[in-house]
Simulated assay, not measured.
Amino acid sequence: MTAKKPNLRQAQKQLTLTLICQAAREMIYSQPYDSITMEQIASAAGVSRATVYLHFANKNELLLKILSENMEEQMELYVELAEIESPNLDSIRAWLQRYRELMDKHHSVRHLFSILFMQLPDRKDFVSNHRERVIEILGERFPGFSLKGLKGKSRERKRIKCYLMLFELEHAVINFSIVPGMPDIDIALDLLAEELLQLYQGDN
């Protein structure tokens, strides 16, 4: 059977997209968002402005792509948490350290979510969709995150508890790590590990 030849045109298109996203990410992480133009992004990526517009209608669509990629990285970590063979305090605490490192990596652009939601109001649901997927994934292994068999108010109460746990993870890791005067992040991670272990064991 003849091997299928690679689609060079598609490969080139993907390379161009990668270059645009890399250039945009570097600029967005280091400069005020409002000062960045599509022309600057094109120049940094080594492509024409027209090429950038072939991939993205505007700067906000490009920002959506970058923030979505950040959330995909976070999703991969949650999948990793769900796949820990026999969760215990040590393994969960180690996972939390990786989670902290990822959030530290992207903390400088967290404020851009609010800008994105104002500019693209029809895309606000991509964050809530992400959290719903996280709850679904963790619910397969962590009884404390499982919504199976629940209906009505009981289901909504459990769902809200799951959201609150995710908020606690995100905001503790972000704020305790970078805001002066906040509580000790390492002790916070120890306590979060205990909470997650309880959720794995089914305590609510």
Rank of each mutant, 00 (worst) to 15 (best):
D34T: 13
I92S: 03
L81E: 01
T51Q: 10
F126W: 05
L120V: 01
M27D: 04
I135E: 09
L81R: 01
F142K: 02
H55N: 09
T16K: 11
G202L: 06
P32M: 09
E80R: 12
Q40A: 13
A45T: 01
T37L: 00
K65F: 04
A23L: 05
A188Q: 03
N129R: 07
L199P: 11
T18K: 13
L166Q: 08
L169E: 09
G144I: 02
P143R: 07
S35H: 14
Q12P: 02
H55I: 00
L192C: 03
T16D: 07
K148M: 09
L147G: 01
E76W: 11
F56I: 01
Y78Q: 06
L77I: 01
I66A: 00
A45I: 01
N175C: 12
L199C: 12
E80M: 11
L166C: 05
K151G: 12
M182E: 08
R131C: 07
R157I: 10
L166F: 07
P32E: 11
N88A: 03
M165W: 01
N60R: 03
S91V: 00
S35P: 05
E72C: 05
T51E: 10
F176A: 11
A3M: 14
W95D: 07
V173H: 09
K153G: 10
F126A: 00
I20W: 02
F117T: 06
R159S: 07
R131T: 07
S177D: 03
E73R: 09
K59G: 06
R157N: 07
E85R: 04
L191Y: 07
A44V: 01
S43R: 14
E73I: 04
N204V: 13
Y200H: 14
H111E: 07
P180F: 06
S48E: 10
R131Y: 09
D184S: 07
A57G: 08
S35C: 10
I28F: 10
I20K: 03
L199T: 07
A23E: 06
R25L: 10
K148R: 11
R25Y: 13
H171G: 12
D190N: 13
E140N: 14
L62K: 00
P180R: 08
S35W: 08
A57P: 06
